[in-house]
Design a protein around this nucleic acid. Structure first.
Lengths: 342, 342
DNA sequence: TTGAAAGCGCTACCAC
DNA sequence: GTGGTAGCGCTTTCAA
């Protein structure tokens, strides 16, 4: 059987269904919303018609009318990470859990990738009223932007580090305590020259660096003061940073990396330089991404509970959307010891 | 200085800006759209006012008026993978590249996770007119659904396998050729009993299984006929499937896994059973996710060019949105040999 | 060059 | 219970 190429028909509207059902659009609207005002008979008839015709309420029109979008904005700022898209697996895993939590609540998810420095991404998103609330995954270098927005805009929650004077709502791991545990673990193993690799300008990383420094203060026996190898968060830049450190004659017996991605780059850089892990240099990361357990050798790291984090973010956001002034939340970190540190 | 807690003010609307500028909303609309009809002086004045007041056009209202959303729907169907959110890193990486490509075009991204079997997810998304076009990442078990929708709805592209009789537009890797190359590689290494692990009911996987079978047909010296260990695509189910195969006395000297996630589970299952890779059993995966190079041992796999795939998806979708009947596209696969096969 | 007015598709108020 | 009507905030005719 040969079919005529069928022209695309304009989608049905509520008034079409109303005409077919011999009622007014008001009644269709009520019926579809399950209002008890409409007689059961009519309601079912209207539902049947809608199903037959594949009619679904136009969400744009409904949203304009109801002054809401039934959608949450999820923003991922990626300073210094332009080379790769959404590079860090940690953020990806977070995104997955967020999708779950948001869908569960019957909301949609509007995804936005932002490459700082970029003016107005947050204020514009807010002002455009595309979303009923906003989740920002990672502070990146946008602390000031967030601070400014939070002054006037309440339904905003941020995954990241909790800073001392901060008016926006964050959810995050106890970065300082996690880093402290990691470095104390290295010290207990007898490591004396521990290097930190990362960019403390990012709040979360800054807190991890503080933990690293604190561990040094508390351990008098160390041979070296805190040493920072500054590196952005991409695999390539961190690989290069560690290579450069080694080439320059840098001397250490342990590396504490600000993230697992950096730690894994460090593993590669060390191996490439003929340095064995962990016998010569121990390596510890942060995040416990899925990759971490499968690296070679498997990576010791500080675990963040992503799933719980995602649910907390969504929970706090809904409370803020409801007008409540929900506070920040910090979750415990857990050291996971694997073979990259012995 | 103590600040009074400031009440949240309703966002400005176009008429507010119009009043402030002493012109009509029409003029503001034109000015903000950069229309040459408005005098430069007035246009700048209006832009200045808008910036000062943080005014941005309400996207819902504009979309309703213009009958478009400036948004693409991105759907991830996850049959059998309910346990984990967006579990497969391959899809995650794809999502990242898609975000890039879509943002570049000035569009937004509406993300939807679907857990089949679930009626109407696609027709409802289409009918709700939430998006100007739709990208589906992975056919999963939804071939029929896609087929049905594509009959009437053109701006739809799917990442996945290209099947013989298929009316929807796909972008994907040459799964059959990739699988063929992988298995021929194993045969060249002298492997005689090669097992396939995966679920051929998913179109992409089905094609990979075909490639596996074809390699067997072409190689008379193999000791064993094609052997399928059926497994869903999650780490847990595939781990169990391989364990069960081994416990049942299953005999093989190589495993060709339908995805890298399955391959890595196979690695774990083999190691846990005291079987060494690659000396006793070689393992080859498919995808070349970031994890693959870092597994232990590093995984031989068939590389899919995700970045190019994402750009092709978006490109074809825009052509379809413009009315063109853009055709499916298949990209070459590339075997990447690492230490899990020797 | 500008403004008035219509209308995108829907919901909810008000009458009946 | 049901329908008419107003209006969400915007863009774009059309008329001036």
């Amino acid at each position: 059987m040969v079919m005529k190429p069928r022209r695309r028909t304009a989608p049905a509207k509520m008034s079409d269904i109303a005409r077919l059902a011999g009622v007014s659009p008001s009644t269709v609207s009520r019926a579809l919303a399950g209002s008890p005002l409409v007689t059961a008979r009519k309601r079912e008839e209207i539902h049947r018609l809608a199903r037959e015709r594949g009619y679904v309420v136009n969400s744009t029109a409904r949203n304009l009318r109801l002054q809401r979008t039934q959608t949450l904005g999820v923003v991922i700022p990626l300073a210094h990470e332009t080379s790769q898209p959404l590079s860090d697996p940690f953020f990806m895993e977070m995104l997955g859990w967020l999708a779950d939590a948001i869908t569960q609540r019957g909301y949609g998810m509007f995804l936005l990738k932002v490459l700082p420095p970029m003016e107005g991404w947050l204020t514009d998103l807010i002002a455009s009223q595309r979303a009923d609330g906003i989740i920002v995954i990672g502070q990146s270098t946008e602390h000031q932007t967030l601070e400014a927005a939070a002054l006037h805009y309440k339904p905003l929650v941020v995954w990241g580090g909790h800073l001392a004077a901060q008016s926006y709502c964050t959810v995050g791991t106890d970065n300082l305590a996690g880093a402290l545990a990691a470095v104390e673990h290295l010290i207990k193993l007898g490591r004396k020259r521990i290097v930190f690799v990362g960019d403390p300008a990012v709040p979360e990383i800054g807190l991890r660096y503080e933990g690293y420094r604190l561990a040094h203060e508390r351990a008098p026996g160390l041979r070296a003061p805190p040493h920072l190898v500054s590196s952005h968060l991409t695999p390539d830049t961190s690989y290069e940073a560690v290579r450069a450190f080694i080439s320059a004659g840098g001397n250490c017996d342990a590396i504490f990396a600000a993230t697992d991605v950096i730690a894994m780059s460090a593993l590669r850089a060390l191996t490439a330089s003929g340095i064995s892990v962990p016998s010569q240099v121990s390596v510890v990361g942060f995040d416990d991404i899925a990759l971490a357990a499968h690296s070679n050798p498997p990576l010791t790291t500080v675990r963040q509970d992503i799933e719980r984090g995602a649910h907390t973010l969504v929970d706090l956001l809904f409370r803020r959307m409801a007008g409540e002034d929900a506070p920040s939340s910090t979750m415990p970190a857990e050291l996971v010891v694997r073979e990259s540190s012995c």
